[in-house]
């Protein structure tokens, strides 16, 4: 059991004596204690994201009454055992959706020009780089070899978003609202959910990232 753990393998099924259970618990704690050992694998995260996305769209297509409420609550019975979490779970099953504004699409200036906003190396491997010109503030990044950029102004009231590097999102300093670096709204405290951030056209040229922005006057 301990050797499987040390080899990074799943724990094999079996039965343990009580003192072996304690030793295994200590081993798990030590194994999890290597700095950075508990960071999830990028490939796993992307795969599960896809799985959740397709399962959630299947859920959305199904009628809301498809899962009998009684079955839902029975399924969450373990959760409901803890009073606080039980109340939370109950609420989470029943609250009503908030209205939301439509996404705002792409910013394509009528009289635009390509402007250097970052070096390609600044955004390699999914790093996010903020840029600001006289007309536009935005964030540029790269994912799987594709460059993308979004407006850096919140679609609610135009407050300038702050990059939250640790959580990989753009936070609005004015109201608790956050967007993904792809511009999608992640969460918000507002009663009408703000739309996604507009996309900005970007391209790579001679090791530089260029964005299509309004011509400077």
């Amino acid at each position: 059991m301990i050797e499987a753990l040390l080899a990074g393998k799943p724990l094999p099924p079996g039965r343990l004596d009580p003192d072996e259970v304690e030793a295994l618990r200590a081993a798990i704690e030590l194994r999890a204690a290597r700095p950075g050992a508990d960071l999830p694998d990028e490939e796993f995260m992307t795969g599960l994201r896809r799985r959740v996305a397709s399962a959630s769209s299947a859920e959305a297509d199904a009628s809301p009454s498809r899962i009998p409420r009684r079955a839902v609550l029975a399924g969450a019975a373990g959760a409901v055992a803890a009073g606080l979490v039980g109340a939370v779970a109950e609420n989470a099953l029943t609250s009503n959706p908030r209205p939301r504004l439509a996404a705002t699409g792409e910013i394509v200036p009528e009289d635009g020009q390509w402007v250097q906003v970052a070096a390609v190396s600044d955004v390699a491997g999914g790093q996010v780089k903020r840029f600001a010109t006289a007309s536009t503030v935005g964030f540029v990044t790269e994912h799987a070899g594709t460059l993308s950029a979004v407006s850096g102004a919140c679609t609610h009231q135009g407050c300038l978003l702050k990059l939250n590097q640790a959580a990989g999102r753009l936070d609005c300093p004015c109201h608790r609202t956050a967007f993904g670096v792809d511009g999608k709204l992640m969460f918000s405290q507002l009663d009408t959910l703000p739309g996604a951030l507009p996309q900005i056209q970007v391209r790579s040229r001679d090791g530089q990232v260029e964005a299509f922005l309004p011509r400077e006057v």
Binding site: R98, R176, G180, F187, L190
Partner: peptide, 30 residues
């Protein structure tokens, strides 16, 4: 002003997956 709500399931996933994974890793060690 209400409490924060998520835009969709993708947002729920992105905001919580690292936390849940790290929690599970600390409990099973592999």
């Amino acid at each position: 002003v209400g409490e924060d709500v998520y835009a969709d399931w993708d947002a729920i996933y992105l905001d919580n997956v690292t936390r849940i994974y790290r929690l599970m890793y600390s409990k099973v060690g592999n």
